[in-house]
Design a protein around this nucleic acid. Sequence first.
DNA 1: TGCTGCGCACATG
DNA 2: CATGTGCGCAGCA
Length: 540
Amino acid sequence: MSEIKHKYQILAAIDHLRARKSRPDINRICKFMLKRYKVSPKDTKADLKRCLKEKSIFKVDYKDNVSYRNAAKWRKKTNLNSKMASTIATNERRIITSAIATLIYQDQSYLENGIAFEDLIKAAVSQDSKFTKKQLETMVHKELVSGSLVKLPNGNLALGPADHDGDSSDSFKFEYNVDSNTKMTSSANSSCRSSPQRMRGRPKKRGGGSTGHGPTNNNTRNAAVRVGERRKMAKKVFDPSDNNVPSKRKRGRPVGSLNKSTIKKRLLGGNQKLDKEGTPISEGQMSPDGSGDEIEHEEPIPHETSGGVCSVCLIQKPRGSNDRLVECRDCNNKAHLSCLQSGSGILKPRPDNTWQCPHCKTCVVCCETNDAGILTVCSICSDSYHALCHIPRIPERLKAWDQWECNNCLESRPTVVGSPAIIPSSIDFEKQHSLSIDPFLKPHELDRAPSKLKEEVPIDPNIPDITNWTTDEVHNYFMENYPEVAPILKEQEFDGQALSMARRADIVQGLGLPLGPALSLYRIVVKLQTRKDDWTMCWG
DNA sequence: TGCTGCGCACATG
DNA sequence: CATGTGCGCAGCA
């Protein structure tokens, strides 16, 4: 409950959009989250809501549209002076957490390795000029003492495991590699194309730019607060041939064009939006809360995608073939329609023609995904349920997973067929196919292994404890269990320590293995790391 | 085609 | 008046 999985990514998304002078609305945030972090819009929205609740993000209605603000950076115009004092400490923490978010945004390897003290201070300084470096250092020390921040074995800092005061549940945990041996995540550390321009306050100089462009113009690095200057080539602002007529510039808001809301106010006084989207939006109330839902529910059909690899058969078919690829409603996973139709319940498209991959499929009762427990899918309506959510409770561990019908369907059809349909992630399935391929990538890969599942499955004494294994022991184990990858692990000098630190990305992306083998290996690694043979942990 | 940088109009205190 | 916001464009990958 207190844990907001993607809080920092969302904050980073907001910061990013703000830095680009784009409105940080739900749409853009979701888009950004999906692209950069592979977090599905559904998860983004859910976490965003939690962030709103805990007030690490504010929702504001600005110029008749909804925006989101990073609480750490946003000075709320409020007159609650009395509240001020009590929130200072929280704000201090927010400065730190915001700095962390910024850093993670800049370089995702911070997620794994933690953040060097100096880096954190530097980021905090550049974020908030209200505080001196000294003060910020003190804050960080304070957070260390309180446990909100922890020092990793490599000396870097990470947020602590739990929050200590109710206000901001900073329970985000880094998954980090301490051991340099394990850092083979090269490809995972996608750094952004150009660094974000944080803290770019309002430019001091106004309106100077139009003519005086060229490579030299603003390169006064020491121009106070303004950290980011455009780093690419100087922009052409206008073409001399434009000198004659109307507009002096080629970019930016056309002279005389007014803001939508202004137009609305001045001309209509009514409630039609005029913008090109052409969708007249009824004005006024920006659903005080609802905006989280105001997008994304488009797409009633699984959209056919222009290309990609089928997550089921792992084959890419050329576009135009009869067997079209459909995309998961909530993430980027794709699959051939035929693969879905011939697959087990969890794979089948819904009657309304939408499709959710196993990771995005949610229980129709509690709306939680497979993470919260094995989902059983109705063979008729394709609704999925957790065993306990469905009434009557679904018996556990059913062998066949194709024929279960939910209560709704049973009620509407008196003859009962019902043997439950368990999704392929069930443990039975896992045991039978311990090296089979997980066809689906979880939309968000950044973290895994939800603790609740860890708690549910007891440690299996038959699974060896690898912590002190040498590279040779690792090699031997894999020679026995998965000989194909043994040489690769050996070559990468994986010992027990390294293996227990390995993250999904390390295995799936870092070893250069094809997806299938990589996922199979990852499952074994998770099994060894947790000493629990629970396939669902690979999805966590 | 989608992302980015940013000038400048506009909103807000 | 000072400053925050984001539209809408140009440029780039």
